[in-house]
Amino acid sequence: MTGRREGHGLMDEAVLLERLRRGDEAAFSHLVERHHRPLLRLARSFVSSQAVAEEVVQDTWVAVITGLPTFEARSSLKTWIFRILANRARTRGVREGRSVPFSSLSGDDEPAVDASRFSANGMWSRPPEAWDGNAPDTILMNGEAMRSLSRAMEELPPAQAAVVTLRDVAGMDSAEVCSVLEISETNQRVLLHRARSKLRRVLEEHVGAK
C-alpha cells in the first residue's frame, strides 16, 4: 500500500508551505480549494447542520491563516488543518449536545456485501462485474455515479464519513486519521471497512453491466 495517495493537483507540501509563508495568494487559493470540501464533510460529521459546518470551516481557515507564521511542521500541514477543524467541530458538537460515537462500533453490523449474493457455502452466486482498467476515470466522468456517490457519503453514519473522508478523500494515512479523530487504529479500520464497502456497493450499481 502506498502511504500517501496522490490526489488532484497535489503540490509538494514543503514547497506549498514555503509559498504560503511568503504570502503567495495562488498557493493559498490552491490550499483552500483542495481541502474545503473534505473539511466541510468532516465538520458535518460533528455538528447538526450544514450552516454550522460551514461556519466551523470558515473559522478553521481563519485559524490557519493566523497560525501559519508559527506552524512548526511537526505534523503535515494537512493534518494540522484537519486537526484544527476536528477540535473546533467537536467542541461545537458537544455544545449542541451532539456527541459522535467514534469509539463505539455498535449499531451497524451490515455485511460488506449482501448475503443474497452468496450461495449457502459462502461462494459468490451473483459475483461482482469485472471493472476494466479505466474504471476510476470512467466513474469520475459518470455524472450519475458521482451524484450517487456524493449522496451515499452524506448518508454514511458520521464516524464512518469522517474516517473515509480523511483516509480516501483527503489522502491521510491511518496514523494521521487516528490522531485527528482521537480513535484507535482498530476502530479506524472497522469504520473504514464499513464505509468503503458501502461506497463500493453504490458504485457497483452504476458501473459494469451497461
Binding site: R5, E33, R37, A130, P136, L140, V169, R196, L203
Partner: peptide, 18 residues
C-alpha cells in the same frame, strides 16, 4: 474482481473534483 472494485472505489474517492 471484488478486490479490484474496492481499489477502484478508493482511487475514485481520492480523485473527487474540488
Amino acid at each position: 474482481g471484488y478486490l479490484r472494485q474496492m481499489k477502484v472505489t478508493v482511487a475514485t474517492l481520492g480523485h473527487l473534483p474540488p
